[in-house]
Write a protein that binds this DNA or RNA. Sequence first.
RNA 1: CGGGGCGUAGCGCAGUUUGGCAGCGCACUUGGUUUGGGACCAAGGGGUCGCCGGUUCAAAUCCGGCCGCCCCGACCA
Length: 515
Amino acid sequence: MPALLIVMGIKFIDAVAGQYQYRPGLWSGGRRRKLLKKSYVKEITPRSENYSQWYSDVVLKAELMDYAPVKGCMAIRPYGYAIWEKLQERLDRRIKETGHQNAYFPLFIPQNLLQKEADHVAGFAPEVALVTKGGDEVLGEPLVIRPTSEAIICDFYSRWIQSWRDLPVLINQWCNVVRWEKSTRPFLRTSEFLWQEGHTCHRTSEEAEEEARKMLAVYKEFIETELAIPVLDGQKTEREKFAGALRTYTVEALMSDGRALQAGTSHNLGQHFARVFDITFLDRDDQLKHVWQTSWGVSTRLIGALIMVHGDDRGLIIPPRVAPTQVVVVPIISKKRRAEVLEAAKGVEAELSRQGIRVHLDDREEYSPGWKFNQWEMKGVPIRLELGPRDLDNRQVLLVRRHDDFREALPLHELAARLPRLLEEAQQSLFDKAKRFLEQNSYHCTDYQEFTGKVEEKRGLFLSPWCGDPECELRVKDDTRATIRCIPFDGPPAEGRCLVCDRPAKYQVYFGRSY
RNA sequence: CGGGGCGUAGCGCAGUUUGGCAGCGCACUUGGUUUGGGACCAAGGGGUCGCCGGUUCAAAUCCGGCCGCCCCGACCA
């Protein structure tokens, strides 16, 4: 085995009980090497041992969040919030490029407003938080803390819209919402979370449909490009759609434990809300008509997806485009050459920074290099540069990639020119890997026996024929806990017989267990 | 909401069976030596043992009640 690998030009280092033996001179000449074995930190439970525990360990140890004294609530710590800010920045740009403006609507919603739309209230009633007192005063009408803002925004829209000339209304808001959840998990399902919600009004049904589809496409492109997470796009079934919507579209991602996660949704609301909130306009033909609406949102849940799609047993792996820190420089400080090394490290930091790379110099002297390596790996920084006396002598820096642990000694003068490319490669490589995982864990399945067995055994996503009857959908859920994630846009045409009831299939749908 | 587990220093835990000075590791502070995969030595600081009540000369430990967190389910856009 070692002989074979040396032939391939790769050198190995013994990894004994999670520690390397350092072999001088190995880094020179731009050679690469690979680790035999990795057991770095014991603070993170291996995924294979307990996936939920792994997830908890990662969010805490990477300092993304901390638990609040209130169940289901959390502080998003600076490092976690920095990731959120990156996501916001990238998505906000896209929302504006497609013609939307940001605005802000109130947190409190009079209870009667929320209750106007029948399906909407039925869907959200079990999970609304209600304010009944302000100070000493018992409120005449209780106030709902927004679980979503359709109701309050529609109340404003009914006043703002009179003419077809006022349309379309294209507004987005970034805010927090509250849903009283029974079981909560950091980022994936919290009682309070951050998100954006777009709310638009249109003159025609076609325009609204186009908007709903367009924003779903924006989500797909955003999530795939920036978060390096491949998603399946499609439509939700009646059972799974948004409470009050005509149709719901969704992008679904597959986590590394084989469970699906709804990463973003876009709703064609039809005229359901316009009718009950009386949002009307006088059209060109002098007729008073109800507007056609959409709403769409993604949340801090995306951070959960990021963790579960890319993370490994050493912690987070953040795609470079959304990484708060893209490159960390760790100087190897020795007593004799401390000043020299630090100066060189600062030079590297400054040069990369000039290139627009988000670089951090970790020059803390109270921690050993090894400690820093582990910490930054837990935090998922894409690239680490090690710079020590030996590197100085060789005018080089040792580069280590987080996502595949490849190491390479780079000449100092080439560094700035090569890093942007290396970061892009890391981004692409993460996407490719996630895509491969999605493909390898997607199955075409037409036999119910086989289906129930495989769902239990392998998880993943199952493309199967479905007759369209909610009863069959429910039966699958009762039997297997899997739900229909979506009716894919670009799926194969319906053919064959329903997975459950054997009647002719109307759709090919993706089934899966989900978060 | 059901089943299971756990609450002792910032974190991880021992001590609870059999009541008797509240401990260990990490982290933290100070000084020194170090620094290429979680360095070492020395000296320190830090506690309402989840909360309330009961038994007892004496409770982290026994009894009753409550609260919270985690895991597995149920529920949930």
